[in-house]
Design a protein around this nucleic acid. Structure first.
Lengths: 189, 189
DNA sequence: GTCTATAAATAGATAGAC
DNA sequence: GTCTATCTATTTATAGAC
């Protein structure tokens, strides 16, 4: 790869990381292109050399953000759903103590308002997320239920003003995922 | 009540219904005060006689919207969770064929970005929703899991670009709620 | 209480220099 | 590719007439 291409790739990555962080922390509509670029240590004018529009950035940031969140999870998470849920439904994730939260949960109800490309990318990202969870399971229906308990539970817990209540909700969802994966061991047909 | 007060109350109700409808259909940030007022057949200037700010309207619209959604549900819904889930997780609700969708699901990931009053109202509204579900159940943890499957499942299904996949997700959540309420009958301790 | 008019700020996107 | 400067549109909120 030529020097110029490598430099461009590097800039684009800085913009994407900046966007994924800011969008998950503050929401897509609340963040301007100017803020994204300043955080990436660039200026507004340079933006359009990398993306066609703010919406184009959104789609790519969702994909990127989910990959980063995926790499962050603990090593033993791939062993069973229970460990994965413990990480995903942690208070640290809810309170966004990581650099980026999972876009699937943090932005879920915003996606319906966006254009085709954003919805398409979100759908693809959720499918990959389910695929990953499915590898720890045999029953697709139970996998879907676990995924909804995780993404939905995290999203709901973030909307609440009552920490004790929010904690209770996270715990109930973790217990739900555990229960679903335990049922699999003793499958009844 | 004097005529003037009754008139004011009527105007405020028109604004609230307009806002609850537009916010759930198009999102809070995408809708301007001007659009809310035009839909309520009033002009922008009149808005501030009823609400202190757009955020104030948001909080009250969430509360109002949840009440309207609650009144809409079929008669037999109060009998068991299964019937309630069938209504809540229907494709009609997902596709927003009603005048207003349930704000708890339609706006869930937007709430975290709003001010204290909005989060407070959302929390109170969710608690009332759970209270209603709790009356059909004995196990609080299972009630919370069912509520997350419903609100989270509906929110997720709305973000998807793939109708078949979205339908599958709704079905899995309905099955999850059914399974949870069936487990209650044969409680194992 | 409702209207018209306007203030004041911010946003997405483009133009042109280097 | 990145910069500064600017265009154009939209927004929340306020002022003052009726």
């Amino acid at each position: 790869m030529a020097w110029q291409e490598a430099h461009k790739e590097q800039s684009k990555n800085r913009i994407l990381n900046s966007a994924a962080m800011l969008f998950t922390h503050y929401g897509f509509e609340k963040i301007s292109i100017d803020q994204v670029m300043k955080n990436a240590e660039l200026t507004r004018g340079a933006f359009y050399s990398h993306f066609r529009s703010k919406s184009d950035l959104y789609a790519q940031a969702i994909s990127k953000g989910a990959k980063v969140a995926s790499k962050r999870k603990p090593e033993n998470c791939l062993q069973d759903m229970k460990d994965f849920a413990k990480y995903y439904l942690s208070t640290e994730h809810r309170d966004n103590n990581y650099e980026q939260g999972c876009p699937l949960a943090f932005l879920v109800s915003d996606i319906n308002q966006q254009d085709h490309q954003v919805k398409k990318t979100y759908t693809k990202t959720l499918k990959a997320f389910i695929q990953q969870a499915q590898s720890l399971s045999t029953d697709r229906e139970k996998t879907l239920q676990s995924v909804v308990l995780m993404i939905g539970g995290l999203a709901l817990s973030r909307a609440l003003d009552d920490e004790e209540f929010s904690d209770e909700l996270l715990m109930a969802c973790k217990a739900g995922v555990t229960s679903l994966s335990t049922q699999e061991g003793a499958d009844v047909s």
